[in-house]
Simulated assay, not measured.
Amino acid sequence: MLSWFKSDPTKKLRKKYDAKLEEGMQAQRRGDIKSYAMITAEAEKIWAEIEAIEKSNKK
């Protein structure tokens, strides 16, 4: 009934994911490929969490 009051559980994770992508892009621009790879891996883990939450919510 009051579903519009429910917060989106992925909203915070999406912001964190976007921030990691931005951070990775900046590292890549600086030429720091090692940091870029580590940050991108962290972003992929966050994205996997988002997908898992969305998948569990659809059931």
Score class of each variant (00 low, 15 high):
Glu22Thr: 12
Lys12Ile: 07
Ile46Ala: 04
Ile33Pro: 02
Gln28Asp: 07
Lys45Val: 13
Ala19Thr: 11
Glu49Pro: 03
Asp18Cys: 10
Met25Lys: 15
Met1Pro: 01
Asp8Thr: 15
Ile53Ala: 03
Glu44Gln: 12
Ala52Gly: 02
Ala19Asp: 13
Gln26Lys: 13
Arg30Gln: 08
Leu2Ile: 06
Asn57His: 03
Leu2Cys: 06
Gly31Ser: 05
Glu44Val: 12
Glu51Phe: 00
Met1Val: 04
Lys34Tyr: 14
Lys20Arg: 06
Lys20Ala: 02
Lys34Gln: 15
Glu51Val: 02
Ile39Thr: 07
Lys59Arg: 09
Arg30Ile: 04
Lys59Cys: 02
Tyr17Lys: 03
Ile46Leu: 10
Asn57Val: 02
Lys20Tyr: 04
Leu2His: 07
Ala19Pro: 03
Asp8Val: 15
Gly31Phe: 05
Gly31Lys: 06
Ile39Cys: 03
Lys55Cys: 04
Glu51Trp: 00
Thr40Gly: 04
Gln26Asp: 12
Thr10Pro: 00
Lys16Ile: 15
Ser7Val: 13
Glu42Tyr: 03
Ile53Asn: 00
Ile53Lys: 01
Glu23Asp: 13
Gly24Gln: 00
Lys15Leu: 14
Ile53Leu: 06
Gly24Leu: 00
Ala27Glu: 12
Leu21Pro: 01
Lys59Ile: 04
Gln28Ile: 05
Leu2Tyr: 06
Ile53Met: 02
Ile39Pro: 00
Ala37Leu: 15
Met1Trp: 04
Ile53Arg: 00
Ser3Asn: 11
Arg29Met: 04
Lys58Arg: 09
Trp4Ile: 10
Ile50Asp: 00
Lys15Phe: 13
Lys58Val: 05
Trp47Val: 02
Ala52Asn: 11
Glu22Phe: 10
Ser7Pro: 03
Ser7Leu: 07
Ile50Gly: 00
Lys6Pro: 02
Thr40Ile: 08
Lys6Ala: 12
Lys34Met: 13
Lys6Thr: 10
Lys55Gln: 11
Leu21Ile: 12
Leu2Pro: 02
Ile33Met: 13
Ala52Cys: 02
Ile39His: 00
Leu13Met: 04
Arg30Gly: 06
Ile33Arg: 12
Phe5Cys: 06
Lys15Gly: 10
